[in-house]
Design a protein around this nucleic acid. Structure first.
Lengths: 126, 126
DNA sequence: AAAACTGTACTAATGATATAATACAGTTGC
DNA sequence: GCAACTGTATTATATCATTAGTACAGTTTT
């Protein structure tokens, strides 16, 4: 059963996207594997303090992308192959580093300064 | 007059926030300075292909943060001191590197791998 | 078999975002 | 002074995200 212990819902972006992105990252990093059981819509919504419909929307999104399979009455399951996992990983990394690089470069930082900052924040983040 | 040539409005996030974030980045990087004139609400909205009210919302947000001054009938102006500029810069960099670090770390990458990727994308981005 | 769980569907209400159209008051440029 | 531009305000409308409540069909557990 997937725990969702380290998912904190924040403001500023749709909650259903936060949930689906969280699961994608967990899948890409290998912390969640093929066949793993998801908590029910009701249970997860209670855990996160949100509406069951919002969880449903997140799960439905992942189902449409082939990462989750849902069956009437039974628990929903993670569905992921090695290829899908690697594709996800590449996608997420490019998204993050690409965006961050562009932004920091626009701030006028040099590559070395960016590396130094990366090192600094690497130690600070959990 | 500020040009907004390299601002491309995208989906997925509020347009008025994209505008205000763009201006904040330009201010933080020094490309926009104190006293610079903003285009009128009508002109900028036509340029970006959006509604004047949306531009007004973005400008109002910056006005509330003390970065823009608006006067009835006259052009709105950028208002920024050296301290505000440096605070903005720090804020933007921390936001980006912090978020990216957390995400890439969750992917299971090492610090050295992250640095190598940063270097790779540094050359690739414009 | 029955109770408790599961996924799914639907309606209704609210708030944020965005567009459209219009109006008015003040400034600028000729 | 006057036209053309500015900022500002208002009303109406549409869509999306989210919550709330309810209902039903299927599976699991006992």
């Amino acid at each position: 059963m997937i725990e969702f212990t380290d998912l904190k819902i924040e403001e500023g972006q749709p909650v259903y996207l936060q949930i689906s992105r969280y699961l994608k990252r967990q899948i890409a990093s290998g912390l969640i594997r093929d066949g793993d059981e998801l908590p029910s819509r009701r249970v997860l919504s209670a855990l996160l303090g949100i509406n069951p419909n919002t969880v449903q929307k997140a799960f439905r999104l992942l189902e449409d992308e082939g990462l989750v399979s849902s069956n009437m009455g039974a628990k929903s399951l993670i569905r992921v192959t090695e290829e899908k996992k690697n594709a996800l990983k590449r996608e997420i990394i490019e998204e993050n580093i690409g965006y961050m690089t562009q932004s920091v470069k626009q701030m006028g930082l040099s590559l070395d300064e960016a590396k130094a900052l990366l090192e600094k924040y690497w130690g600070a983040s959990l």
